[in-house]
Design a protein around this nucleic acid. Structure first.
Lengths: 128, 128
DNA sequence: TTGCTCCTCACGTCACGTGAGGTGGC
DNA sequence: TTGCTCCTCACGTCACGTGAGGTGGC
């Protein structure tokens, strides 16, 4: 596959693909002239990478869990991330609700709205 | 309030506070010697900022919606962000489920697990 | 006087984006 | 031969983090 085909199938950009290669996440098997040629399974590999990225893994972590194959390694890392993910989802939900309410609120000044104030009160509450 | 008090009440770092000041999101009312002194309402202002940040607003966007007061301005920006937020929550949920299943899966090689494969299939599905 | 907190640069980091200038396949 | 896609630097960006070296309040 040409890099353009990979782009079409994944929606990732050339810059992203180059970057993933630079940090050792993917590699092209050969070159056609200057051009990188990829095997078909690159798409599945990128799906794993993107799934992990959406889950908040750093690229370095993804390198770690996908290249050092031992099951226990990625299980350990993944377990920690799962808790973090749950917290982030909860955070986003709070932000979503606060913003959604601000949009629907009839109050002329949202800062006067007790519902919105309750949202604000929750922002630093988790940090305690 | 001293910057240390703000840190204690919000959990934000000195670097973050300095950065927010630099981009014009907050300001100290005066100095005590070299030290920034903040009014009490800085905490509420930071709560709004952090809420927006968690919602995926950039700092520039937060400057825009909190300094140009008109209600219509922030309503327009917020509406767009709300959709984005819903997509991101759905993304995180997908990533969470994929990773959670990988952790509980009895299959020796997760790549052989059809459940995990289904998660991977969904990764680029939304991009189509 | 001694800590401790605070200050101001300035450079680093992470995950890319964005040209600039050039090469190669079809 | 002409486009078009691809290439390699190299520098930019966003939201901070991290020292280095210094000042000031209690």
């Amino acid at each position: 596959m040409d890099i353009g085909d990979v782009r079409n199938e994944t929606g990732l950009t050339t810059a992203t693909l180059h970057h993933y290669e630079e940090v050792g996440l993917i590699s092209s098997t050969r070159r056609n002239g200057l051009r990188r040629q990829y095997e078909d399974d690159i798409v599945e590999r990128l799906a794993v990478i993107v799934l992990c990225r959406r889950g908040g893994f750093t690229l370095a972590e993804i390198v770690e869990i996908t290249t050092t194959l031992p099951r226990r390694t990625w299980r350990r890392v993944a377990k920690n991330k799962l808790d973090e993910l749950d917290r982030r989802i909860a955070d986003l939900q709070l932000a979503r609700d606060g913003i959604a309410h601000a949009l629907g609120c009839p109050q002329p000044d949202i800062m006067q709205c007790e519902h919105f104030q309750a949202s604000l009160a929750g922002v630093f509450a988790t940090a305690d």
